[in-house]
Design a protein around this nucleic acid. Structure first.
Lengths: 344, 344
DNA sequence: CAGAAGTGCTAATGCGTATTAGCAGATAAT
DNA sequence: ATTATCTGCTAATACGCATTAGCACTTCTG
């Protein structure tokens, strides 16, 4: 309706019959300077502020102070599309929760266009005091620039050095994977397979590292370093290699393999144990519950947010934190059937 | 680590032997003013910029330009908790999509505590250029203040006047409900019931309005204006009233009623048709698909965001938009069985 | 009763940029 | 030769706020 003219401190000052400086002092004066403003005046100003709903312009504030009590959230992939929703939602929830309790608002950076870049001509990121970065795969050039620069940020998920240590909070996938391997071995599995990528994103590498350091040479019977291959084909390879247990990085693959196996009349876990490395999708999925480990997404996001605030407020040094991933019992890992054992 | 002093245009100017104004003009002068700077000078400045890696401080830039290109998102209920997730996620997705394509970032207001108020002390809504408001039920006092004020906002969901017309984008529930009633009647239903609230939130009122204007006096055999009543009790009432078809506003109630009916050996839709007024939860729910209508949540959110930007950028007048809700075929609405027909 | 200390407030300044008005010199037009 | 136009640049200002120095006045101190 009326012109989109933002209220300024000058307007407030005029309404309250004081100067702009006084308004500013009322809003955020030090206890020292505050004591020089009598209660009467302060209340008069505060009333006008309340009545008008005035809030200091964060841009001007940022110009002079540097801080805004706003945290940026940058996601390399669009955050909400349904496909990604189950992946990002817990993170966003955790970030929101922590931000709220720390008194920060969230600036969701929409990535402006097709290419999501932190450093575009839209460096709007800097409006925030700092930034949480989400995504399966990061742009390493940008990460290096961030590390080199002086803008506070924290990554969710472990990141390799990028011209310096990257502050992050991640899931401790390697030991979690190792633990599952040990569990499989203690069940008697001696012919184990791996299906999934073994390089690329750090999270992938960590899983493979944890797996390979616990599996002996003799025990790893086959590995399929790709995702989304036709399940029957995968199953053929597994069976002909005599695998009694398969570790799968992607839940979707695990589901497909399990389905294929059942179709052939195989029993799980008797004829083939399946272990998934991380609960990628909602846990309440109906039907079979895969043996896996939990990824504490909300806790990771909360910790990352708190770490970020530490960096923003106290210029804290770079921290790197890996959170424990609890094993999920599930019902797809068991002792191999004696029949298969014999064929070995 | 130590706060390295950012390069400013003044530094660039000094290095290039020109004034700050010239640097600014080189960076973003109009073709008009640009033509007044000889190539030689421009290239000298550009070289310095390239060599130093200077980037204009976006904060200062915004300061002088006025708008922040930020849209606020205010939700009356916390947005992310899993219970609400299915309700809010499509909206957030739509908002994000539209904001992105329009070049806006999103400021998620974290609501800071238990009571969510727009005009609280620490709600810094006004950081944004405008605001999208989400929620099942609004605070009418606040809405009135918003309407009276000059802060651009758009509500998602129809809203009654609050001291003036409220700009909104909603779902057109009344005709969608009417259409389902007509469909039921054309199947031969003459004894129809209604289960759900009929007053309160606008969306509720619209459903009841659409229902009651299409159902004749004689056809409405009973109505239960409450939610969450024990399903067996509800079913008793429906059956003793001789209803052949029941309209339910809450999916949860519909599920409960359907379950109770099946338990008693009733067949749906033969013995009892069930119509749900709106797909409140994810459509891909396994099992029975209720006859209902689709709520175009993403489209609503997109339209609301676009409307908001229109208001922010061009000071556009208040608009009110209701989007069509497509009927969902489902399999819980069919012709009443002749047996029941006879009992009538 | 002079000086010190305290009180209540404001003018002035700077943050880094975009933008406008306009200056000095050169060239063209009359 | 005088004015008009163009060229190449810069000074000055505004954006909205936080912050410092300090003014005018009152009250206390010795």
């Amino acid at each position: 309706m009326a012109a989109v003219k933002r209220l300024t401190q000058r307007d407030i000052a005029q309404l309250a019959g004081v100067s702009q400086a006084t308004v500013s002092l009322v809003l955020n004066g030090t206890p020292l300077s505050r004591s020089r403003i009598p209660t009467e005046t302060r209340e008069r100003v505060e009333k006008v502020i309340r009545d008008t709903g005035y809030v200091a312009d964060p841009v001007a504030r940022k110009m002079v102070k540097g801080l805004n009590r706003i945290l940026g959230v940058f996601t390399y992939e669009p955050a909400f599309p349904s496909g990604q929703a189950d992946f990002f939602t817990p993170f966003l929830f955790g970030i929101e929760e922590a931000a709220q309790s720390l008194g920060y608002d969230l600036l969701l950076l929409t990535g402006a266009g097709q290419q999501r870049k932190i450093f575009g001509d839209n460096v709007r990121l800097r409006l925030a005091d700092g930034c949480v970065i989400l995504g399966r795969k990061f742009d390493n050039t940008e990460l290096a620039r961030l590390v080199a620069g002086d803008f506070p940020f924290v990554a969710v998920g472990r990141r390799d050095d990028a011209g310096g240590p990257v502050p992050y909070v991640g899931g401790d996938y390697a030991p979690a994977t190792s633990a599952l391997v040990e569990r499989a071995k203690s069940y008697g599995h001696r012919r184990i397979a791996y299906v999934g990528l073994n390089e690329g994103a750090e999270s992938t590498v960590d899983r493979w590292y944890g797996f390979s350091r616990s599996v002996g040479e003799a025990e790893l019977v086959t590995s399929i370093f790709e995702v989304g291959r036709p399940p029957n084909e995968v199953l053929d390879i597994l069976l002909s290699a005599g695998a009694t247990c398969v570790f799968v990085t992607e839940l979707a693959d695990a589901i497909a393999i399990e389905h294929a196996a059942r179709t052939r009349g195989l029993s799980i876990p008797d004829d083939l144990s399946i272990v998934v490395l991380g609960n990628h999708i909602r846990a309440e999925e109906p039907g079979r519950r895969f043996t896996s480990f939990a990824i504490p997404r909300e806790a990771m996001a909360r910790a990352a947010t708190e770490m970020l605030v530490r960096r923003v407020e106290h210029d804290a040094p770079v921290e790197q934190l890996l959170l424990h991933c609890e094993p999920l019992e599930g019902d797809t890992l068991g002792a191999p059937s004696s029949k298969i054992k014999k064929t070995k």
